[in-house]
Nucleic acid binder design. Structure first.
Length: 813
DNA sequence: GAGCATCGGGG
DNA sequence: GTGTACGATGCTC
């Protein structure tokens, strides 16, 4: 027997011939890749007997299931767990394969002897991590035998697996990649038809662009091969020889990996990149995911958008914007529309495209390195594999974390809701946050106050938990609800406990950070992750797919939140501040002649009245801000405002500007209007500007590029029930014999006429002498984009449209 | 207003 | 993989 220690970062399992084997992947302290096999663990589920059941008879009956292979079990054992703090005796039913486990559980559920079944719907690897107490990215020790040493890894037969005291991986080997494809048709992306023409990698001391047309260059990173087949073979070779821990791309789940996969299939090149020689697996359709066993494929776009995104300023999550915000760098500027031609003509320009390709990989590499501490800390805290942790939403992360904690609390993991239950939950609404709708307008001297982590602090301070609800006469009545809810403060509930431990752990981490001159990225990431989890627990109470769903708790949390913000507004009014807007946990006050110090004093006074961990914070001062009416008829206020700080930083909230199926002219106009107003507050200037835009539209001075709308075909043309403009265009293109494929972007312009919009859609090529419909662009694109903003200035659309001579068709409006 | 469809990221 | 994204918004009928 030999002992080996390694940093664990991927796990999978295989089951065949009645044997289920876990594969653990990682890198040893010496730097070797390792794959360790463990066949000692069997799948299982838990069973609670009914009151009348006879244990021995039941066990016999279970064992007789052996006759049917599908339902065969191995053994049973007696165990004790807790439900809401109360001990309960259970049978643990050990089974053969993960797949059959839920089938057996559901089969025996109907027996008279069975009261309830538990833990039959938890992915096997997840259960393995919990039961073994494993922490991804940290050091574990396996005791067993070294079986072989392949060119990819050591292969180890593990007899024993131990989680060591937390030691986190360092020097994680990251390899970034990016492809360029041949795309003569502009936006159409067609992996069936068009090849990959360039492929770049970036790693530590490693940069490379592979391409298969020769051009003159002295760049050392460019490597020429004979064709696309050879490019794909090099891809495979390089991934295998570099042997990274993490391979990363930007939207690589949705684009690069599937494209490589499809092209390799065409050449019948097996992409058995897995450390166990398994193939690159690419998921289908909407939930596209690309996985390589033993190498963590991270689509850094997904992680950044889901986890970092909410705290970022950028409105868009394309590589250019994200790199700009997180790295302060941008993509190399090239015109991709000219790449196909450059390729066809073997132009010297190709060298620049190769550089562009390389820079993309470099940016992806740097982005990944930058957020790697967050990925590592998330995986460690939530006990989730990085492959999953970088792809899931908050609810799934919370779920993973809570499931892990049940071990410590000896609790049973609640089951996932049935689809029937989910439907009921979706339909069952409760009252949400309190909102003071702003009177639309431009305001000056605005101060923002907010309750720090409002929902978590309410859960903690008022012990909002299923196992504390109405268990005695203790606790304060939750205000403002029909039902009487009292949460006892005798015993801290499960979720409040979780929040308290998250908060106190975060405070400890922050204390350490405070003492550091150079802040440790890992600790900062840890603090952010702990905060993220605490903030997600309220949502998880109310999430329809939640295992810890509690309508009563969710309802009580918002009830308390409404109580506190209303109380705050009342107090602020009494002090002479003018509250112009309030939403959930924050209020916007006008100084009303008072000073910022006055606000800070007021904040201190309020804090003396708040219970537990609740706290009101001074958030900031803005010299000007515009508040806009929510879209009429949509009911309820929407968060829609734009603020400008003392240093002229503009913060725009709620203006949905960046959809592809808005024309450029609409997007540009909205942005420009907000800028003029916040910086100069000059109504006349904006009206003049808008009239100019409208005039330009009416006089057809606006370029086709700016009135073009692009919409993507999501399915086959024949499958559409509802014919939108882009579908009408696609149908016509098809009739004309143009290739029309799913996923292709359809560019169209709406032309003049009286027919339905879809019948007036033309591609830019079809336009000929026909003119775009100025009325449509004015009334359906530009004006809707600025309507609510201008309403603030009592400026009607009429006023904008009139006041210039050429009143056209849209006058009747 | 309901219900269907699309967007995002990627060349 | 003991799982099948998702939340927001626009267009048609």
């Amino acid at each position: 027997m030999v002992k080996v220690r390694f940093y664990l970062y991927d796990i999978t399992y295989k089951s065949n011939n009645g044997d289920t084997v876990i594969y653990l992947f990682g890198r040893t302290e010496q730097g070797d890749k390792i794959m360790a096999l463990d066949n000692s663990i069997k799948p299982y589920f838990l069973l609670q007997e009914s009151a009348t059941a006879n244990r021995e008879d039941l066990v016999q009956k279970l064992k007789s299931l052996k006759q049917d292979d599908e339902l065969q079990i191995i053994s049973t054992e007696s165990i004790t767990k807790e439900i809401a703090g109360k001990p309960i005796n259970l049978l643990r039913i050990n089974t053969i394969t993960p797949k059959t486990t839920p089938k057996i559980a559901r089969y025996v559920r109907d027996w008279d002897e069975v009261k309830q079944i538990y833990e039959f719907d938890i992915p096997f690897v997840k259960k393995y991590i919990i039961d073994k107490g494993l922490i991804p990215f940290t050091l574990i020790e396996v005791d067993g035998e070294l079986v072989e040493k392949t060119k990819k890894s050591l292969v180890f037969n593990a007899k024993e697996i131990t989680q060591l005291e937390e030691t986190t991986i360092t020097n994680t080997k990251v390899l970034a990649f990016d492809i360029e494809t041949y795309n003569p048709d502009g936006k159409i992306i067609n992996p069936q038809k068009y090849p990959i023409i360039m492929l770049s990698f970036y790693g530590k001391n490693f940069e490379k662009v592979i391409t298969w047309k020769r051009f003159k260059t002295d760049k050392k990173y460019i490597e020429f091969v004979d064709g696309e087949r050879e490019l794909l073979l090099r891809f495979k070779e390089i991934v295998e020889s570099y042997n990274p821990d993490i391979i990363t791309g930007y939207f690589s789940d949705g684009f690069d990996m599937p494209y490589i996969h499809d092209r390799a299939e065409k050449y019948k090149i097996p992409l058995n990149l897995g450390i166990d020689n398994s193939k690159l697996v690419v998921g289908n359709k909407d939930g596209k995911v690309a996985r390589i066993k033993g190498i963590v494929h991270i689509d850094i776009y997904k992680f950044i958008k889901k986890i970092i995104g909410p705290t970022m300023d950028t409105q868009r999550f394309n590589l250019d914007s994200v790199a700009e915000e997180l790295l302060g760098r941008k993509k190399e500027e090239v015109d991709l529309d000219t790449l196909a031609e450059a390729w066809d003509t073997c132009s010297p320009e190709l060298e620049r495209f190769a550089y562009y390709n390389l820079v993309d990989s470099l940016l992806v590499y740097d982005l990944t390195e930058k957020v790697l501490p967050n990925i590592i800390e998330l995986s460690k805290i939530v006990k989730i594999l990085p492959f999953d942790g970088t792809r899931r939403g908050f609810s799934q992360l919370v779920e993973s974390y809570l499931m892990y904690l049940t071990k410590e609390y000896k609790e049973i993991i609640p089951r996932k809701p049935s689809s029937h239950a989910v439907k009921g939950r979706i339909g069952k609404k409760y009252q949400g946050a309190f909102v003071v709708e702003p009177i639309p307008g431009m305001y000056e001297d605005i101060v923002v106050l907010d309750f720090r982590s409002l929902y978590p602090s309410i859960i903690s301070s008022h012990n909002i938990s299923e196992d504390a609800l109405n268990i005695d006469e203790e606790g304060i009545l939750v205000p403002g609800l029909k039902e009487e809810y009292r949460f006892s403060d005798k015993k801290k509930g499960f979720i409040p406990n979780v929040i308290d431990s998250l908060v106190s752990r975060r405070m400890r981490v922050k204390e350490i950070i405070k003492t550091q001159e150079k802040k440790d990225a890992i600790l900062l990431a840890r603090s952010e992750t702990l905060k993220l989890l605490a903030n997600s627990l309220y949502g998880y109470y109310g999430f329809f797919g939640s295992r810890w769903y509690s309508w009563e708790c969710a309802e009580s949390i918002t009830a308390w939140a409404r109580y506190y913000i209303k109380d705050l507004i009342k107090k602020a009014d009494e002090k002479g501040f003018k509250v112009i807007y309030g939403d959930t946990d924050s209020v916007f006050l006008l100084l009303n002649g008072k000073s910022i110090d006055d606000v800070k004093n007021f904040t201190r006074q309020v804090n003396q009245t708040l219970p537990g961990t609740m706290e009101l914070e001074y958030e900031g001062y803005f010299k000007r801000g515009i508040f806009v009416e929510a879209k009429s008829g949509s009911g309820g206020a929407k968060k829609k405002y734009a603020l400008i700080s003392s240093d002229n930083k503009i913060k725009i909230t709620g203006f949905a500007t960046v959809r592809r199926n808005w024309s450029n002219i609409a997007k540009k106009t909205q942005k420009h209007v907000l800028e003029i107003l916040l910086k100069e507050n000059d109504r006349a200037k904006v009206v003049t500007y808008l009239r100019k835009v409208i005039d330009d539209l009416r006089n057809h001075k606006v370029s086709i590029e700016d009135v073009k709308i692009t919409t993507q075909l999501q399915k086959h043309v024949e499958d559409y029930v509802q014919i939108g403009p882009h579908v009408a265009v696609a149908k016509r293109l098809q009739e004309k014999g143009f290739p029309v494929v799913v996923g292709m972007g359809i560019d169209y312009v709406i032309i003049e006429g009286k027919d339905m919009i879809r019948d007036r859609a033309r591609t830019p090529e079809e336009l000929g002498n026909e003119k775009y419909d100025a009325t449509y662009y004015i009334d359906n694109q530009v004006l809707p984009a600025i309507e609510s903003i201008m309403a603030v200035y009592k400026c009607s659309l009429d006023e904008i449209k009139k006041g210039h001579s050429q009143s056209g068709l849209s006058e009747f409006f």
